[in-house]
């Protein structure tokens, strides 16, 4: 049985809808939900299962999980986006220069990147966060630095591939400066790879933020974060498993959406899939 094309393509659509919804929640929840709804403790309904009053139940302090998870989206998305942006801002020039200039510059930069890649990203992020002192801003820096070597490596590979294309040589003989070649001929051609990689990195960054916060070395209370919520649920797993399930599902849905969207983007932008006769 062949799966219809429309269904296969819907992967990207579902992914896009999921990602868009989570981003909208992250953006709009703080506007429409007063903060005290999420911090208000309902002492009579601690660890309450889902009810009409609390559709997703409450935590150990009687706080409404639905509001908390909606407001937590903001923190997770903000940290992940900022961290990925940071790794692009550092990794893109590094990778471009390494790939286009080559020679000694490339050797030195890539040796450094390879060394950084020997450190597990999560370990690197945890260490940096512990060193700088865990808070929201340092979590961004920690994840951003930890992800930079991956991005630099991928961009360098793409830049190297594109720099050898005949159209880049054609651009040289057409009298373009190196700067113009990088900006007009190399950058547009590596953008698909950068976009795909950013989407996937965003998914990993959400996971990393959750991991860091879960270990207490990421977002700190009173900021609401999904990782933090899961951490808090650990002691009440027997009595109130929904306290872990609610934020866990939130993370999963977001990351799944990003991965689906990323997969579909990669299929659509795959150089093998276009051009050629």
């Amino acid at each position: 049985m062949r799966i219809p094309a429309a269904f296969r393509r819907s992967k990207g659509l579902i992914g896009a809808i999921l990602v868009l919804s989570v981003f909208l929640v992250a953006l709009l929840a703080p506007v429409f939900i007063p903060e005290d709804w999420a911090t208000q403790m309902d002492m009579r309904a601690r660890l309450s299962p889902p009810t009409w009053a609390h559709p997703l139940g409450t935590d150990q302090l009687g706080r409404d999980l639905m509001y908390r998870v909606l407001l937590g989206a903001q923190t997770s998305i903000y940290i992940a986006s900022a961290a990925v942006l940071m790794s692009i801002v550092i990794g893109l020039p590094l990778g471009l220069i390494s790939g286009y200039v080559g020679r000694t510059t490339d050797n030195v930069l890539m040796r450094l990147v390879d060394t950084l890649l020997s450190f597990p990203a999560l370990l690197l992020a945890l260490t940096i966060s512990a060193v700088l002192g865990p808070n929201l801003q340092n979590t961004i820096i920690a994840i951003g630095i930890a992800f930079t070597p991956f991005l630099a490596r991928i961009i360098r590979g793409e830049a190297l591939r594109v720099a050898q294309m005949p159209y880049v040589e054609g651009a040289r003989t057409a009298g373009n400066s190196d700067f113009r070649i990088i900006v007009h001929h190399i950058l547009p051609n590596i953008m698909p790879a950068v976009i795909v990689q950013s989407t996937i990195s965003l998914a990993f960054a959400i996971l990393a933020e959750a991991g860091l916060s879960f270990l207490g070395l990421g977002t700190q209370p009173p900021d609401a974060s999904w990782g933090l919520m899961i951490q808090a649920s650990r002691d009440y797993l027997d009595r109130a498993p929904w306290t872990a399930l609610v934020p866990g599902v939130a993370v999963a849905v977001t990351v799944l959406g990003l991965n689906m969207f990323g997969d579909a983007l990669r299929d659509a932008l795959d150089p093998r899939a276009k051009g050629g006769s």
Partner: peptide, 27 residues
């Protein structure tokens, strides 16, 4: 590839890579 077997296996593994390890652990 591109048949139901692939769709099933690929969807399952996509969900798999999207869940945090500690969430697996808690489950």
């Amino acid at each position: 590839a591109n048949r139901w077997q692939d769709t099933a296996a690929s969807s399952a593994s996509l969900v798999g890579v999207s869940l945090p390890d500690f969430f697996w652990g808690i489950m």
